[in-house]
């Protein structure tokens, strides 16, 4: 084994190990991309811009659909993430668990705050409050995750989601759902693809 062969072997083995221990970005991002695409898409169709109803779905469908899809995506990505890290223990595992707790704490905190003030708000602003608030949290947490793991794709996705969210909120109710569905959900699908291609 000459020196350059040894260096090649090291490169290969490190890359191979990295792939084996990193969760597949497609499995981590695509469930969320589809959740946003469908969930916020339904919201746009039912509660369109200017209070218009584009498709006469029952009132409960968008919120129920989004919640059900989010639970499914959360379980799926949680399992996929745990599975890839199952055989490693140490500081990295703890980092992952703490990061997961940050997500739960953030969502629970916002849900309590929004729940308290929702009654005082007119109907047409409710979607904007819940949608805009939660999406802002997702964007910030993805950016934080990118910072923790030095993952450029994750950080960029968070920055993109944060920007898209602000644009949507400024455009107003209805438009927000459309923008988040297409640009936000689409962004997650793209992030999964880019992350996967980088790992190969």
């Amino acid at each position: 084994m000459d020196p350059s062969e040894a260096l090649d072997l090291i490169r290969q083995e490190r890359a191979n190990t990295g792939r084996a221990l990193t969760p597949d970005p497609r499995l981590m991002y695509w469930p969320w991309g589809l959740t946003w695409l469908i969930g916020f898409g339904l919201s746009f169709l039912r509660y369109g811009p200017g209070g218009r109803t584009l498709v006469a779905l029952p009132e409960w469908v968008p919120l129920f659909g989004l919640t059900a899809l989010m639970i499914a995506a959360g379980l799926f990505t949680g399992l996929a993430g745990a599975r890839s890290g199952r055989s490693v223990s140490g500081p990295t595992t703890r980092q992952g668990i703490w990061y997961g707790i940050a997500w739960s704490a953030g969502f629970s905190g916002l849900a309590v705050v929004f729940g308290q003030i929702s009654e005082a708000l007119p109907e047409h602003l409710l979607g904007l409050l819940w949608g805009g608030g939660m999406v802002a949290l997702v964007g910030a947490l993805y950016m934080a995750g990118g910072a923790i793991w030095n993952e450029r794709t994750m950080f960029s996705l968070g920055a993109w989601i944060s920007a898209v969210n602000v644009v949507g909120v400024l455009l107003g109710p209805g438009w927000h759902a459309l923008v988040v569905s297409l640009a936000g959900g689409g962004g997650m699908l793209v992030a999964g693809l880019i992350g996967w291609m980088r790992l190969r």
């Binding site: 490190r14 490693v88 140490g90 990295t92």
Partner: peptide, 27 residues
């Protein structure tokens, strides 16, 4: 060769992280 592969794979773990034997074997 074989030990270099083992060390290279282990070097990819973060400091103070441990990997289960069967998983290392699989990798």
């Amino acid at each position: 060769q074989a030990r270099l592969r083992v060390v290279a794979a282990l070097s990819q773990l973060n400091r103070d992280d441990r990997i289960a034997f069967p998983r290392l074997q699989e990798i």
